[in-house]
Amino acid sequence: MISNTLIFSLLTFSYLALGCMALAMFSHFRDSFKQPPTQAQSRGLYWVGWSILIASYYLGISYLGFAYGSILFIGILSFAGLLVILTASYRPRHLPHLMAGSTSLGVSLMLIS
């Protein structure tokens, strides 16, 4: 049986991960924080993004199996990416807040399930 709460948490984690990757870019960081990122910040965000992405993929396939988990994860990534792009273009200032919000939502979903 596939758990819907798990899928929602994976979606929130992917949003966080892709959000980090977006913020690792000069222009998106500047739009969100009104100041340019330092190189360390940029690099940090980039690798944090990748680590969260890999960790959530691992979480997905360990619960849902390699085949189903992989297919689902690609679907989740496409949708999470779309959400990040919409936030970054229409509400760049809120991107960090929404990332924090989505993380806490994801963690609490994991805890209750």
Binding site: I2, N4, I7, Y68, I71, L72, G75, I76, S78, F79, L82
Partner: peptide, 10 residues
């Protein structure tokens, strides 16, 4: 259902 939604969005 949820994966189906993702397929639909794609």
């Amino acid at each position: 259902p949820l994966l189906r939604v993702f397929f639909f969005i794609c």
